[in-house]
Design a protein around this nucleic acid. Structure first.
Lengths: 193, 193
DNA sequence: ACCTGAACACCGTTCAAGT
DNA sequence: ACCTGAACACCGTTCAAGT
């Protein structure tokens, strides 16, 4: 793990700088390191502050990870928005995001089941999740007018299945991505009800 | 975490007993506890042995988890084999396993990307994974004769997508399971090439 | 206002030792 | 043959203190 030089103390009123620095450092570490290799001490060390500085801006390590997830969901939405085109183009952009950023995708859909509290989601993450999903709904809506929501969800779950598997078991040899998307769209979206 | 009574020392030649006891205890702990709440100390304590006893039968904690995963994959295969019926019945059995054993399913498809070594899979897990997949292939093969392998994989990825999401984000409200399977099978499997 | 240092109860793993 | 105890370098988090 990289140890950054000690960070200069933030001037008054700019405490948010450290917050952002921690999020950025964590996002960067996740490119090359697994979730369970991340620790309070590695992220703060990479940012150049003491371990306890994290608690000035986040409730705890999970709080920091929530902020990082929010960043990733927004990034995924932007990726889909930029991938102008039909539903096939969007689907490929989705799979491309997971393939090119496996660490990010793994964190976004990481299964940490709350064992203590009755597993309630972070509201801002739910919102950002739906926002990332919206472009796909719109693209499906451009192709057909019936069952748009349900068809979009079906397509997305099929995409997620492949994306998650690629991230979890990269050694698993899957048939061609383009072919997969083409078959899915043809059978699930183009197909008449 | 439950602390078991101290375990009686195994008689000569029955060292494998402890191995099995550790696997069983870990599997049980995963019903109620998250992966990252599992530790060498909790599983050994639940088994009634000292922390270091784990290393007599497994390379390390990951080694124990591999053995547990193998157990789960075999269990999933048995679940599918017992769910005699058409491809719809198998698909529902698959989703049912994930829904009823979210902790197990989460572990089986947990994304721990190797960062040090070039992510090579555990051979026995690959084998057991394919073995669990086989019943689904057979069921698809009973419906159609072309593209059986590819169609099975498509269906499975779509099932995995839903299963994984339910496990990772149980609060996410998905449309009815039976309806999902029915639409998938109708569009992906029954549909002519 | 913003951050650090010492301290606490943990963690995985090694290695020498006990029965 | 089978297992333990002490030790090491970690870990997340709290709380009093420094600038």
């Amino acid at each position: 793990m990289t140890v950054a030089n000690r960070r200069a103390r933030s001037p008054r009123g700019s405490g948010e700088d450290l917050r952002e620095a921690l999020v950025t450092a964590t996002a960067k570490l996740l490119e090359t390191h697994d979730l369970n290799e991340l620790s309070v001490r590695t992220v703060t060390s990479a940012t150049g502050v003491s371990p306890t500085a994290l608690y000035l801006h986040f409730e705890d390590l999970q709080g920091l990870l929530r902020a990082v997830k929010a960043l990733f969901f927004a990034e995924l939405r932007d990726t889909l928005l930029e991938a102008k085109g039909d539903v096939r183009a969007l689907a490929l952009a989705y799979l491309g995001y997971a393939r090119e950023h496996p660490g990010r995708y793994a964190v976004m859909f990481h299964a940490h089941r709350r064992t203590d509290t009755p597993s309630t989601p972070a509201p801002e993450l739910v919102e950002l999740g739906w926002a990332a999903f919206q472009p796909l709904i719109d693209a499906v809506g451009a192709v057909r007018t019936d069952d748009v929501q349900e068809t979009s969800l079906e397509l997305w779950l099929a995409l997620h299945g492949r994306a998650q598997l690629v991230v979890a078991m990269p050694w698993f040899d899957l048939p061609d991505e383009v072919r997969y998307v083409d078959r899915l769209v043809r059978h699930l979206v183009d197909h008449p009800a």
